[in-house]
Design a protein around this nucleic acid. Structure first.
Lengths: 111, 111
DNA sequence: GAGTTCTACAACCATATGGTTGTACGTTAG
DNA sequence: CTAACGTACAACCATATGGTTGTAGAACTC
């Protein structure tokens, strides 16, 4: 898999993951959807602050909000988690390949 | 694997990954070590700006600097990339387990 | 020894971020 | 209908971030 490293969506993705409250919100909503106020109960900060965190997660595509009466159900989008993981896996692949040129000298390929 | 989500080191890790220049520096140094000035040549920004990016990567543990004469060789630390990946994998595991309780009702475990 | 190269670091600036409070509005409950 | 609830959003504030320029020192080169 080829991953484009210069991507604003990636910036938002990792940025969103760089806050413990947001990682926790993501964790909760991965297990089960929750309304914004349900989420807000769990943290010390104000409701508006939690709202902002959810908005950051939403802008990163990590979470989706759906109207449910007067509530907004927040549910995680595992596809974006997978995308972030894919980038890291790709970076690790580069590490594993770092001596490939040397290898090709020491261990000549058959074909 | 159990991953602690409320960890300042994790904040730094994801924060460091949330910038395209830093991801690129990480990519380069994963393939092969490079001095700070070698890195700086590749980007539009000033030398000092690149220095700062390297410092952010270093604080996150993603990169290590070693003195080499008057140069500082920057080399990546794949272990921290792996740590970030492990967190994401753990989150994905939660997603896969989201219906486990329901499953245990619908599909009674044998043991 | 003198000049050049590589790095470090401070000071500064504009903008982004993470928090607050306050107001407004749709929705549900009594 | 009225009150309470859940959400949205604006305004504001302190600090962090990402960039700049400038100065200084250590290490090579000649």
């Amino acid at each position: 898999m080829v991953v484009e490293l210069a991507d604003p969506a990636l910036d938002r993705l990792f940025r969103a993951l760089a806050d413990p409250s947001r990682r926790d919100i993501l964790r909760r909503t991965l297990s089960a959807p929750a309304s914004v106020s349900e989420l807000a109960e769990r943290y010390e900060m104000s409701f508006a602050a939690v709202q902002k965190h959810v908005a950051v997660l939403e802008a990163a595509g990590l979470v989706r909000k759906t109207a449910q009466g007067r509530e907004r159900l927040v549910r995680a989008e595992p596809a974006q988690v997978a995308r972030a993981r894919a980038v890291l896996v790709e970076l690790e692949r580069l590490w594993e390949a770092r001596f490939s040129q040397l290898d090709s000298i020491l261990v000549p390929a058959k074909e």
